[in-house]
Design a protein around this nucleic acid. Sequence first.
RNA 1: GCGGACGUGGCGGAAUCAGGCAGACGCGCUGGGUUUAGGUCCCAGUACCCACAAGGGUGUGGGGGUUCGAAUCCCCCCGUCCGCACCA
Length: 997
Amino acid sequence: MPAAPEADTPPHRYDADLAADIESRWQARWEASGAYETPNPAGELSRGRDAAGPKLFVMDMFPYPSGSGLHVGHPLGYIATDVYVRFKRMCGFNVLYTMGFDAFGLPAEEHARQTGQHPRINTEANIDNMRRQLDRLGLGHDKRRGIATTDVDYYRWTQWIFLQIFNSWFDPEARRARPIAELIDEFSSGARPAPDGRSWEQLGEAEQREVVDSHRLAYVADAPVNWCPALGTVLANEEVTNEGRSERGNHEVFKRPLKQWMMRITAYADRLLEDLDRLDWPESVKTMQRNWIGRSEGALISFPAAKTLPGPLHTIDVFTTRPDTLFGTTYMVLAPEHPLVDELTADGWPDGTPESWTGGAATPAEAVAAYRARAAELSDADRGDSKTGVYLGALAFVPFTAPDREDLIAELSPGHFTGTGELADFTLPTHDASDGNGQQGTSSQPWPEGRGERTVDIGVPVFIGDYVLMGYGTGAVMGVPGEDQRDREFAEAYGLPVIRTVQPPPDHPADLAYTGDGPSINSHFLDGLDVEASKALIVERLGESGFGRPTVNYRMRDWLFSRQRYWGEPIPIMFDDLGPVALPVDMLPLELPKLTDWAPRALARDSEPEPPLGRVTEWLDVELDLGAGRRHYRRELNTMPQWAGSCWYYLRYLDPRNDDALVDPEVERYWMADPDPGGVGGVDLYVGGVEHAVLHLLYARFWHKVLYDLGHVSGPEPFKRLVNQGYIQAYAFKDSRGVYVPAEEVEGSLEKGFSHGDEPVSRELGKMGKSLKNSVTPDDMYASYGADTLRLYEMFMGPIDQDRPWETRSVVGSQRVLQRVWRNVVDEETGELRVSDAAPDDDLLRLLHRTIDGVRSDMEGMRFNTAIAKLTELNNELTRRGTGAPRDVAEVLVRMLAPLVPHFAEELWHRLHGDGAGSVTQVEFPAADPALLVTDTVEVPVQVNGKLRGRVTIAADADDETAVAAALAEPNVAAHVGGRELRKQLYVPGRMITLVV
RNA sequence: GCGGACGUGGCGGAAUCAGGCAGACGCGCUGGGUUUAGGUCCCAGUACCCACAAGGGUGUGGGGGUUCGAAUCCCCCCGUCCGCACCA
């Protein structure tokens, strides 16, 4: 509540009204003088303040202009960067600091849909509103550089980057992206053979296009995707929650195959992983990215399989991290969606098939159909813990003979494990070595070890089961119940044999899989070797025989890049009869067509996506001459995902109005260079929420690396240092029905209980926001206290990276601090200065310099809470002394406050120095005089037998003997020593005297 | 289950990086002052126990260890939060 003017309130007290007056006045002057404009080394923005001094690039994660306005939690990170930036500017750095808006994408569009207005109108109104709320905080942004991702001049370059990616391929030997033209040259010159061994000329145009397109970093694939009918669009894995619902709106999401644009981020998996080690990021975020990428080393093993013998053989490829346990395989499981399922489904149940394997169906085909239908109903998360599956009626064969093992299986299991057949016509696949997602061709290869003549083999049954996911590895596993607990549970459920292949310790429970180390057993030529050695040998043997090879598998999939939405960047691609064709770069921007009927439609689950751009018939079909004569093309109708614009906005801040390039290379080198030689470069400090740990931050790193490979940026990483600011939490209140009630209407206390009206309510701590009805708006804080008090309070609440509960009643503490500073400089009654011209005494001077020293290092380390505590301490000392502060001390204190409370400091600065003085934002930050940090005498605590017994004042350079003598002279110390002989004496200079008796 | 972060007064937190006076600074609370009153503002006190005091004892989730000395380092356990999760 704003302080009403009271008769007895001194007229010049620092209250909300005075703060509002000061804040608006200085904001206008700063704006007029371009106080925060930072010059570039070249180009249009090279005018500005003096650019001497090292560069620093500090950035916040830019916001979505959502339209519902800010609460006090939103600007926490912005205030922190602003304080840091102001401090570094005062330390002589040339700091780039600005703010843009991430305005494309689902949130803006969903909001527009609710209000019924066109997204552009909505978005621009929201941006204006957010700018106003943020400006009121006094953030020192270079406003010339602010962009919105929806600006045509901006998304023109987003489209340009898309074309760079489309026109590139990943060369696995060079481990980097190269222009697609170089690949075409290699094919046509014969330096690189065509995939099937034919010469390039022998391939038709269609085949050539297909081969080239299959190498591009941006490509169209018909792949299982996350289809969200309610939103009318597909979503990236990253946008789907664990519960299988959309991150936005919490709608149901279904897996289904659709033709979509993909980006080959998997090609960069290893580099994204390796370079994490070179980043100054929170360990938690690095860990999340590592887990997301999910690199695991193992082997790909091929199992021959057949539904009848004799009969055609198929190959089940399996990824395993434990190839050493191969001989423990007693069954196989395919994911229900696995493409081989149909081929391996037998016509009828083999003799002796147990009832439990059939799912109660009359034939394997019926069992499969029923099981698949059930699995499709369930999202990955709903599949539950119990292991289920049905038998296909087929057998698979471990690719090595192992007579002992076969005897063992024969002994453990009923007759249906034995198949008889002629294996000579088995066809082995050849795998190309490019990557885990590479295509595979087939070619004939002989069955090793002369097995073509064998007519009897021990097969293992092949199941489908939903504990095997199509989205990981090859979608098939070898069932090894001895060494894998999930396989063990499946084996238990279906009565499958268990063969241990690693000797467990004696105390290992017999009913659990053993995953630890130990000697191999029941494993033929591996027996006796430990796990590592067994892995090495089996992989070697598999390689020799052609049945397997070492491989690296990743959890991460390629990035699904297209959305069936209106409010996004149009993808600058056209299609002719043979496939996608890039729009020439000189035809950019490809503007989003004006459309009145832009709203997405909620669709039925199995309907086809309907991109809204498909409604623009005159835009859809174009005739162009791209060099091969005038031809007809159909435009791509999908738009880019929300993440596209945020993948590179930091680069556009550098050079926002450049029409010739996304950024001038000289400007890019200046701002993105790493201060440390050999560093990765990039934004020097990036502050934002941890919720972007794997989405935005992974995509942006990927794009940056592609741009780096293609020579458009000078370093391999976009963000050198990352800080995650904590969330501001707030108490929320629920009534007896569990419904949230507005927090500001709740009365009571922890002791007395809380109530809303007459009804008792319960309290909980949660993220501030609309859903918990516990928002506090910055506008309320401006009205009650002013922006500087809000800034000071938010910085004082705790370490920047920590969550903290909001307490409106505590804000007044920060206002009192400023009031006390104000009172030490300005007379509240008259408004006159009340500083004294007397020189500060020695004690005060020493305290001042200790404060300077501490505040400087706290600011540097972004420990603003402790910096504020130290400044408060100094000011409390001034208050204790009464009589107004010595002018020299007040002047230094004001300079130290300037980064935290810039308007307040600017006002006092001008009162101290007269109106001719320059801005406090551009003076130097105080530096401590080292001579004043050391003292002649020090007060040192004394411990006797580990307990504090007194303190003595001694010369700062006193030696051991002197210190101990002084300690013994202290009565309480002497009493505790009690005349006994010292067994030990120790003096840590300036810190502690320790005596042991 | 795996991985990460963390645990200090009534509350937010400081001291943890580098072992050396635990509780800086602020909120709240208690008492006092200013004020017609309330509020604002100012001053003093405020970890807990004993004591008028001087002082003494206890104390940083629990247990153990290293050390002259541990909130800090090491081991085990408990608890909270976050991320991932049938990952083969």
